[in-house]
């Protein structure tokens, strides 16, 4: 098996580029805690709505301009409905589904997480720019999927 020197060089260059990508991703993931949402906690989908976390869901201030909210993603809405927060607020979202798999996506942000029945998903974001952000379900969840959306207004 003979490998031409240009091919060797190309494979080295190509691999180095991939390694650079991986290194950047690894630094962000492990040192800057910017990894993808990966919360691991189980919940019975059939009792989500009665559970302690999701029963009295609403925006809760937990610190200096820092909020927490539990959202039930169900066919075909996010409960509770539209949200309003001040600019610069950091919001910690906790999500679960009582029925099928949903997606939780806030446009113009990196908030994008799957809500799989049986699991609790968590994702956080700091809203620096004022405006009305669209929250939508980005995983097909049934014939009303396209109606599953809310807004989050940053003042």
């Amino acid at each position: 098996m003979h490998i031409h020197r240009y091919e060797k060089l190309w494979l080295i260059i190509g691999s180095l580029i991939l390694l650079v990508f991986l290194a950047i991703l690894a630094i962000q993931t492990f040192y800057l805690e910017m990894g993808p949402p990966s919360h691991a906690e189980m919940i019975d989908p059939q009792t989500v709505k009665e559970s302690e976390i999701f029963a009295d869901a609403g925006l809760k201030e937990i610190g200096d301009n820092e909020y927490e909210i539990a959202i039930v993603a169900e066919m075909f809405s996010f409960q509770p409905g539209d949200l309003e927060i001040p600019a610069g607020a950091t919001v910690h979202f906790t999500l679960a589904s009582p029925d099928v798999t949903h997606g939780f996506k806030i446009t113009d942000t990196n908030v994008n997480v799957m809500v799989v029945p049986g699991h609790i998903s968590k994702v956080s974001h700091t809203f620096d720019q004022p405006g009305e952000y669209l929250i939508l379900c980005n995983e097909y969840c049934g014939l009303g999927h396209e109606y599953m959306a809310n807004t989050i207004t940053v003042n």
């Binding site: 690894a26 993931t29 949402p37 919360h39 997480v113 699991h119």
Partner: peptide
């Protein structure tokens, strides 16, 4: 499944 819950960050990487 990078954005799925229930899989650790290390496993995903």
């Amino acid at each position: 499944q990078i954005l799925d819950p229930g899989l650790s960050v290390e496993l995903k990487f």
